[in-house]
């Protein structure tokens, strides 16, 4: 399978290094906590700090500027309305924000063709967790590097499929069409790739 060309174009352009610092993470958590209390200045600051990244997520999935812009607005409206539930879900702030942006974008992508039927993953972001939030910025930076290295260890079609599913919202049906194989075959193949990825990252 040929992974989508624009992802390859983007990869060398990734913002280098610059792990999210612990201080920045704390700032984002603090902003979200204030947004939960209805603080509009905090909401504005959160938008300044994160909207370019979330816009990039919307654009990656939708590949259409006006739709990405409209979706970005829905994302921040959702952030405003659900910030009070953030502290209970155990996700790091950027993961929570990225997950909202990605799920909204995928909902929109899929409603282009048919009715929305998939992507209930957002429910997972609202499930309370008693566990402490994940780790420090250093660990987070290491994890990101580890994910890149582990993706590199998968065969390119597998790694490309994982990226395309996450960053572009493609489905098993799309993958099957690209690969010219039955859905069950590509599903089994991707599930094994995901398990291998997890084993590699967890080492």
């Amino acid at each position: 399978m040929t992974p989508p060309a624009h992802i390859h174009k983007l990869r060398p352009n990734e913002i280098r290094g610059a792990p999210v610092s612990d201080q920045r993470r704390k700032e984002l958590e603090d902003l979200i906590a204030r947004v939960a209390l209805g603080d509009r200045a905090a909401f504005d600051a959160l938008y300044d700090a994160t909207s370019a990244k979330l816009h990039a997520v919307c654009l990656s999935v939708l590949k259409d500027r006006p739709e990405a812009e409209e979706t970005l607005q829905e994302v921040y409206i959702r952030i405003w309305k659900s910030a009070a539930r953030y502290s209970a879900n155990g996700l790091s702030p950027m993961t929570w924000l990225i997950t909202i942006a990605r799920n909204r974008s995928i909902d929109r992508l899929r409603s282009r063709n048919s009715g929305p039927s998939t992507a209930p993953a957002e429910a997972a972001a609202s499930v309370a967790s008693a566990e402490p939030g994940p780790e420090t910025a250093t660990i987070r930076a290491q994890e990101r590097q580890m994910l890149d290295e582990c993706l590199a260890q998968l065969a390119e079609p597998q790694a490309g499929a994982v990226r395309a599913v996450y960053l572009e919202g493609i489905t098993y049906a799309d993958l099957a069409e690209r690969e010219g194989k039955p859905i069950n075959t590509v599903r089994s193949w991707l599930r094994r790739s995901l398990l291998r990825l997890k084993d590699c990252v967890s080492q």
């Binding site: 999210v20 990039a56 990656s60 990225i98 972001a125 960053l167 997890k198």
Partner: peptide, 13 residues
């Protein structure tokens, strides 16, 4: 969700 969000952190803003 945490693991995969690293992919999005690599996107160009």
């Amino acid at each position: 969700q945490e693991r995969l969000a690293h992919l999005a952190e690599g996107l160009v803003p």
